[in-house]
């Protein structure tokens, strides 16, 4: 009786110590020196980079997709070759390598704005994927739709705008949402070009407290919350699309 009692007591106090240790290391990773502000600052950078990269990615992607589709339509081989080179290079090389190349190629001056650097790098990268998503969305629409529009006397552009694109959007949006989720997560690579994003902030704090795991877990939770929020938003969006009058 006595022996087993002390064993249980020992067990509980060990658990209590362990829990206290975890609590302390998370406490140290968040509270002292207002470290939580570092996470918020990093989170802000991550969100800003993601936001501008998404905008830039959409701009580049739409442009390249339009170039590619028009190039096939008007038989301009050179234009589609240029677009293909861009897409193949971006898709065929690792993001981190692209990041380092672009960083050292364009932003050689060390005091350039880190948000701009990150946005441009990730925007150029994302543009290739967005272009392919949009092109695939446009090409998924039956050719008969284009023919029907043209046979009524509408121009290529009118048919594209009024008939093809409204239908293609339903195929494009879900894939685009996925691309944005990937993009937000991949901005964590930005730390290699000295951008203090959420991941880098977590690493800094870890190097201060000599305890790297808690800050990383906190950063991971932040990403998780953002991504889950975004997917929730997307599924609401998709459901609304699916509920529209035609299917």
């Amino acid at each position: 009786m006595y022996l087993s009692g002390s064993w249980i007591n020992g067990f509980f106090s060990a658990i209590a110590d362990w829990a206290k240790g975890i609590y302390m290391s998370f406490y140290n990773a968040i509270v002292p020196d207002q470290r939580y502000l570092s996470y918020l600052q990093g989170l802000k950078i991550t969100l800003l980079i993601s936001f501008f990269a998404i905008i830039l990615g959409i701009l580049i992607g739409v442009l390249v997709a339009v170039f590619k589709v028009t190039a096939t339509n008007y038989k301009m081989k050179w234009l589609s070759s240029i677009c293909n080179v861009y897409i193949n290079v971006i898709r065929g090389t690792p993001l981190m390598v692209q990041l380092l190349i672009i960083y050292n190629l364009i932003f050689t001056s060390r005091n350039s704005n880190e948000i701009i650097i990150g946005s441009v790098c990730f925007g150029i990268n994302s543009g290739a994927y967005v272009a392919e998503i949009i092109r695939a969305g446009i090409e998924s629409i039956d050719n008969g739709q284009m023919e029907a529009g043209r046979s009524l006397g509408m121009s290529y552009i009118q048919t594209m705008r009024k008939i093809i694109l409204p239908q293609a959007v339903r195929n494009i949006l879900p894939a685009l949402g996925n691309e944005f989720i990937v993009l937000i997560k991949e901005t964590s690579v930005a730390s290699v070009i000295a951008v203090t994003d959420l991941t880098k902030a977590a690493q800094y704090i870890g190097s201060r407290t000599w305890d790297i795991l808690p800050p990383l877990i906190i950063a991971a939770l932040c990403y998780l919350v953002i991504v889950m929020g975004l997917s929730k938003l997307m599924s609401v969006f998709e459901r609304r699309l699916a509920r529209s009058d035609y299917s």
């Binding site: 039956d142 023919e147 009524l152 035609y246």
Partner: peptide
């Protein structure tokens, strides 16, 4: 485009625009 306005065409697969009433 102007010429096609005067030539109506009907397709085997109808090709109605599904997103429009």
């Amino acid at each position: 485009n102007q010429i096609r306005q005067k030539m109506g065409m009907v397709f085997q697969q109808f090709n109605l625009f599904p997103h429009l009433s």
